[in-house]
Design a protein around this nucleic acid. Structure first.
Lengths: 186, 204
DNA sequence: AGCTTACTTTCGAAAGC
DNA sequence: GCTTTAAAAAGTAAGCT
């Protein structure tokens, strides 16, 4: 495993699931601690956790979005906490509801400084977005895997939009390969 | 049938009125920015293409018109920053930037990143600095960009720092505040870019 | 001149305007 | 399209000492 591959860190995992029954958010808002609920502003009830650090958005439909977790295991742990809280309030929940991973955000380091100007032209101006006046990162959309990478001058990058654990690694391989072909890596 | 006929005329008229409005706005903003007629023409062409590709739907005419003008300035190599463009538009800077990126993507405008050197003549002139300073600033930009310092940096801040450094080197010192004002960046940005550039140049 | 905080970009789901 | 959540990258900006 290359040092570049090893540099991959999962920074955030977004997942969604449904408990299959409607919830009374008004009551929940009163009974749960650390919550935030302002239906005029946003329909979901916000439930924050410290360990693992994550946040859950709970909706009237019984659907739940979990975000902020640093791993898939943390998503499961965070959701278990939410389930335990709900069970204590008398809500019946199945033991293993289906959880769908919606997005994984990772960071990594190519280990070399990047000339973003050259990369923008090399990868094809029509395929990338690089507007340093608006944002320092170069936006590169990949088809396979279907993710979006933000490349920075430092050689560090962010890969987002993936649903599989290895999407970031595959994307990183594609990016390394293309930059090497163009002789823009080092 | 008659109603449909009338509707078509109404739609056509409305469409033409909208186009006229967009073109007159481009004209007004271009005048306010002091850019040549060629830029307005390029902006008009881009706007008509955006119209043909149905890119206006869901966006304000003024926003698309401003974004087209911003793109045209860059294509004609006389860029204006989003902040400068937003000052003559009634659309906020963030919206102009978003619309510009959308239009550029959809129309496959192969927009190259702005070269900081393109801001140098105008800024140098506004600061009443010599051609010597201008040449030195250009040199600083070329040399330091070649070393990779430009990646991710805003073109205006980069140009401002090079001009500030050049003014010092040529004994025509302008303060960071003066340069920051014409480039519309903060003194902090000039300081940061200046330090990197001077270091990369080998502290002339 | 620092330090802190905050905003820019990317992504996705949720329910509703 | 917008609203909210979280997270990283790096640049820029504003406020305070």
């Amino acid at each position: 495993m290359s040092t570049v591959t090893k540099s991959i860190q999962i920074e955030n995992v977004v997942a969604s699931m449904g408990i299959g029954q409607e919830l009374d958010l008004e009551t929940l808002a009163d009974d749960l601690r650390v919550t935030q609920y302002d239906p005029e502003h946003f329909p979901g009830l916000i439930y924050r956790m410290q360990d693992p650090k994550a946040a859950a958005l709970i909706f009237r439909s019984g659907k739940i979005v979990c975000t902020g977790a640093k791993s898939i295991a943390d998503v499961a742990a965070a959701l278990e906490q939410v389930f335990d809280e709900l069970r204590e309030l008398g809500v019946q929940i199945a033991d293993s509801p289906d959880v769908e991973i919606q997005n994984i955000v990772s960071s990594a380091d190519l280990g070399h400084q990047l000339n973003l100007n050259a990369i923008a032209i090399g990868l094809g101006l029509e395929h990338i977005e690089y507007e340093p006046e608006q944002f320092p990162g170069l936006v590169y959309r990949l088809d396979d895997p279907s993710v979006v990478a933000l490349l920075f001058g430092s050689g560090k990058l962010v890969i987002t939009g993936g649903e599989q654990t290895d999407d970031a690694e595959q994307a990183l391989n594609v990016i390394e390969e293309r930059l090497t072909e163009l002789e823009l890596l080092e | 049938r008659l109603r449909k006929w009338q509707e078509r005329i109404r739609t056509k008229d409305a469409g033409e009125r909208n186009l006229q409005f967009a073109l007159s706005e481009i004209d007004r903003m271009a005048s306010a920015l002091g850019v040549p007629r060629s830029v307005r023409e390029v902006a008009s062409v881009i706007y008509r293409r955006a119209l043909d590709e149905d890119l206006i739907r869901g966006r304000s005419i003024e926003g698309v018109a401003t974004a087209c003008l911003y793109a045209a300035c860059r294509q004609e190599d006389i860029p204006r920053s989003l902040e400068e463009v937003s000052e003559v538009s009634r659309v906020e800077q963030k919206e102009i930037g978003r619309t510009y990126r959308y239009v550029a993507q959809e129309l496959s405008l192969k927009m190259e990143p702005v070269d900081p050197k393109q801001y140098v003549p105008r800024f140098v002139s506004e600061l009443e600095l010599s051609e010597e300073v201008q040449a030195k600033a250009n040199e600083i930009i070329d040399v330091t960009a070649e070393k990779g310092l430009l990646s991710g940096k805003s073109p205006t801040g980069y140009a401002a720092a090079a001009i500030y450094a050049a003014s010092l080197l040529c004994n025509e010192k302008k303060t960071q505040r003066e340069v920051a004002d014409v480039a519309q960046v903060t003194e902090v940005t000039i300081r940061n870019r200046y330090q990197e550039q001077i270091e990369a140049m080998g502290i002339h």
